[in-house]
C-alpha cells in the first residue's frame, strides 16, 4: 500500500484547468521530485495534496494511517516571515501545534520533540536567536525542524533552495539527503531539474505530456532525453 495515491487528478482554480489526468503514487522511502514549467500546476498540486484546496476532479488516497495533516510542509518564505520577531525555539515548537487540538499549551513531550528536531537540523545552538537575523540557509533548516515536528514520515518541500546561495543550496541538498537516508519520505518541488535529479528516486514531470516514473525511466523517456540532451548541448 502506498503512502499517497493520486488518481486522475484535475488541478486548477476558478474554473481554469492547469493540469489533467495527474496520477502517481508515493511509497515509503521515496524521494519524489516534481518538476515542470511555471504555471504547469506544481504549486496547485501541492496545495491540493496538503488539503488546502479541493481537487477539481479525481482523488487523493492516503495509506498506512497517513492523514493530510500528517504531511510536514516546507513552504516558500513569505515577506511577513522575513521580519517576524520570533526565536528559533518558538518557531520550531509551533510545528507541534497540529497535535494540540484545543489544548492551549505545549506538553513536555512536544518540547522535547522540538529540541530533538532542532538538534537534528543543527540549529539547537541558535534556539534563542531571532529568526529574522539568521542566514537564508539557517532559516530553511529552522523551518525544516518545524516541519519535522508535524511529522516524522513525509515532507513536502516547495522550492527548498530558492533564494539560497550556492553553498547554502549544497548544504540544503545534503540535509535532505540525510533525512531521506533516515527513512523520511520526501516530495520536492523544484524548477532546477539538473540539481534535483541526482538525489531523486522518482520524477513527476508536469506539463502537456506529463511523466511519472523512476529516475532511470525518466532519463530514458522522451521528456527526460530532451532534458539531458539539452544539458549536453550546454
Amino acid at each position: 500500500m502506498a503512502l499517497l495515491t493520486i488518481q486522475d487528478l484535475t488541478l486548477g482554480y476558478d474554473n481554469r484547468i492547469l493540469a489533467e489526468h495527474v496520477s502517481f503514487s508515493v511509497h515509503e522511502g521515496d524521494y519524489l521530485c516534481i518538476v515542470g514549467e511555471n504555471g504547469s500546476g506544481k504549486s496547485t498540486l501541492m496545495r491540493t495534496m496538503l488539503g488546502l484546496q479541493p481537487p477539481m476532479a479525481g482523488q487523493i488516497l492516503f495509506g498506512e494511517g497517513l492523514k493530510s495533516s500528517h504531511i510536514g510542509y516546507l513552504p516558500q518564505q513569505t515577506p511577513v516571515q522575513r521580519d517576524f520577531p520570533a526565536s528559533v525555539r518558538e518557531i520550531v515548537l509551533s510545528g507541534c501545534q497540529g497535535r494540540c487540538g484545543l489544548r492551549p499549551f505545549y506538553t513536555a513531550e512536544e518540547k522535547a520533540l522540538a529540541r530533538r528536531n532542532m538538534e537534528r537540523m543543527g540549529v539547537l545552538p541558535l534556539q534563542d536567536r531571532c529568526y529574522r537575523e539568521l542566514s537564508g540557509g539557517q532559516q530553511q533548516r529552522v523551518l525544516l525542524a518545524r516541519a519535522l515536528c508535524a511529522t516524522g514520515k513525509i515532507l513536502l518541500l516547495d522550492e527548498p533552495v530558492s533564494g539560497l546561495d550556492p553553498q547554502a543550496t549544497a548544504e540544503m541538498y545534503a540535509v535532505l539527503k540525510s533525512l531521506h537516508r533516515e527513512g523520511v519520505t520526501l516530495i520536492m518541488i523544484s524548477h532546477d531539474i539538473a540539481a534535483a535529479l541526482p538525489y531523486a528516486t522518482h520524477i513527476l514531470h508536469m506539463g502537456a505530456r506529463a511523466f511519472f516514473g523512476t529516475r532511470e525511466e525518466y532519463l530514458d523517456s522522451a521528456v527526460g532525453r530532451r532534458f539531458t540532451q539539452r544539458e549536453v548541448e550546454l
Binding site: L52, S68, G72, Y73, P75, S94, C100, Y106
Partner: peptide, 23 residues
C-alpha cells in the same frame, strides 16, 4: 488571548503551514 496564544502565534507566523498541518 492567553488560551489561544500559541495558536495565534502559529497562525500569524505561517497560516498556510498551520492549516496544512491540522490547525
Amino acid at each position: 488571548f492567553l488560551l489561544f496564544y500559541h495558536k495565534i502565534f502559529a497562525v500569524t507566523f505561517d497560516e498556510t503551514f498551520a492549516q496544512a498541518t491540522g490547525t
